[in-house]
Design a protein around this nucleic acid. Structure first.
Lengths: 132, 132
DNA sequence: TAACTGTTATATTATAAATATAACAGTTAT
DNA sequence: ATAACTGTTATATTTATAATATAACAGTTA
């Protein structure tokens, strides 16, 4: 899977990695049980430091998206991704609220906002369908 | 309007201020034309530095949420909040995508996700209705 | 004149991000 | 067994950003 970094972005590199890997799982480009490059390999490929990759991997491991397999190294969780629990929903609502507020302030309609959110979600559904 | 800061949060203070002011406008707790505390006053009230407040105010001014009024100081844009333009939509989609991806990975349904987004939006509509 | 407004400038401190090396324990393949 | 790999841990340093501390300026207001 291709990972692209924007070094000009104000988003930290390890967050960019984390987000892109989750999106990769969402689209099916990264499949359950699939191995990821080693921390050293990926760091070398991207021209960044080993610890930056390790930081991203560890966040994803802690969330249950990745597991460490004795033989295969870092692997996409073969069982399934972590659940939707109350903690996640609370966090999600807190994270999304500012965006909803700004959209509402700017005069976006409920339909517009709903459609953008739904389309983003559907996009993953579709793409995973194609990649499985 | 009451502003509350979480000094333990990993979200920078000036971002917390920016978000809460936008949410205040969205809920109608901050009305068009209404004055905000001076940078020195708000900084003193919150126990933070003048420049931290100024930084938040300037971001909001740049986005068109606030204007500087000769007499009244910093004021909620009396005309209206900034528009929904293509730039905003592009930025919004980019910002929301990671959350949609994670929600989808965790097995959230399109209905669940859509409802959470819609409810957040509706909440502002309702609250502003009450506050106007 | 005095007290306020936002603004600008400069310097410093604190924290987080990213890097640089090095080493350890365990696995894998030659 | 040796060599090459795996993630992990430790330590130190550099870089960038966040936040603070003082000070001053130009304009407004009472």
């Amino acid at each position: 899977m291709l990972l692209e970094l924007d070094f000009q972005s104000d988003v930290p590199i390890y967050i960019q990695l984390k987000v892109q890997i989750i999106e990769g799982i969402a689209t099916g480009k990264l499949k359950p049980g699939e191995s990821l490059p080693s921390v050293r390999q990926l760091a070398a490929d991207l021209g960044i430091n080993l610890h930056t990759v390790n930081k991203a991997y560890n966040f994803l491991k802690q969330d249950g998206f990745l597991v460490i397999h004795r033989q295969k190294g870092v692997v996409v969780n073969p069982d399934q991704s972590p659940n939707v629990n109350d903690e996640f929903i609370t966090r999600l609502e807190g994270d999304l609220r500012p965006f909803a507020a700004e959209a509402y302030c700017r005069g976006m309609t409920e339909q517009q906002f709903g459609e953008i959110c739904r389309n983003l979600f559907i996009e993953f559904k579709k793409t995973r369908g194609e990649n499985i």
